[in-house]
Design a binder for these strands. Structure first.
Length: 273
DNA sequence: AGACCCCTGGAC
DNA sequence: GTCCAGGGGTCT
């Protein structure tokens, strides 16, 4: 589910609700999400104050005082929702942090792919997954973007999904950016020109920013920190539109597997190179 | 690059 | 029943 815009939306929502809150108790109905035993995790988290919530790539980072950072990866179906104590029990609850104001932070995850790590200061940067992440697409320039991909023999769609090359882009926004840029997802990066890269970079940033403004895309499971759906799914031009007419040229959109992921594109607007 | 794996549930 | 899904890891 959650890609950069969704995780960013959740981080912004949680920041408002959680900043300054103290964790008073931890419940772990499904501790398999934890990178350590539930008792150890609880002892490290209880009594700490949540200072802020950040996003890096598709990770939610909760900074706590005294020094501790929780790294939550929602994978496909994870949700992180701040709620009042009186809320009905959520299905698929995996972890609950009780807070000093009576509220709670719930991690729910139907498919149970999501993970929660607790890092002492300095440990996060040593985590291999974190250390291998590429740059944030909204924090680099066009030249840096192009240099990540230029000359590579892989298909551009697969490269966009490679978190080591660029962090935060997933299947939805890769397809949307490629459609907007008029680039076939099957194209090998070494066939793309500087013009292609600058256009792709511009469209990728535009679609990510628009999706953030619209609180992300809810195709199915995604909800924000308040439990609400996003709106960007109403603006999809490519993702999930196989068989439907291209919104630019009316040709039927097609689906292809690229690197094992379904990719939807317009054969006319995104011709093979 | 591709084939699986982790898991659950909705669509068909 | 079968196939599919916003992710990432591990094997050949």
């Amino acid at each position: 589910m959650p890609e950069l815009p969704e995780v960013e939306t959740i981080a912004r929502g949680l920041r408002r609700t959680l900043a300054g809150r103290v964790v008073t108790a931890v419940e772990a109905p499904d501790p398999s999400c934890l990178a350590e035993g539930p008792a150890s995790f609880a002892s490290r988290v209880c009594g700490r104050t949540i200072l802020g919530v950040r996003r890096r790539a598709k990770l939610l980072l909760l900074d706590m005082d005294p020094g501790l950072t929780l790294a939550v990866h929602l994978r496909m179906t994870g949700r992180l929702v701040a709620s009042a104590a009186a809320d009905a029990p959520q299905p698929h609850a995996r972890l609950v942090l009780r807070l000093d104001n009576g509220g709670r932070l719930l991690f729910a995850d139907c498919r149970r792919f999501g993970t929660v790590h607790a890092f002492s200061p300095g440990e996060l940067e040593l985590w291999p997954f974190y250390a291998a992440l590429g740059p944030e697409p909204l924090e680099i320039n066009a030249k840096q973007f192009a240099s990540r991909f230029a000359g590579r023999g892989g298909r551009i769609k697969s490269l966009l999904l490679d978190q080591g090359l660029l962090a935060g882009v997933g299947n939805i926004y890769a397809d949307e950016a490629l459609h907007r840029a008029g680039i076939c997802p099957l194209t090998r990066a070494n066939r793309l020109t500087n013009k292609h890269f600058s256009n792709l970079f511009k469209e990728l940033k535009a679609v990510l920013r628009q999706a953030i403004r619209e609180n992300g895309s809810s195709t199915r499971d995604y909800r924000d920190a308040g439990g609400n759906a996003g709106a960007f799914q109403n603006s999809f031009q490519a993702y999930g539109r196989a068989g439907e007419p291209c919104l630019r040229c009316a040709s039927p959109m097609v689906a292809a597997k690229v690197g094992g992921r379904t990719s939807t594109y317009c054969p006319a607007c995104q011709p093979p190179l």
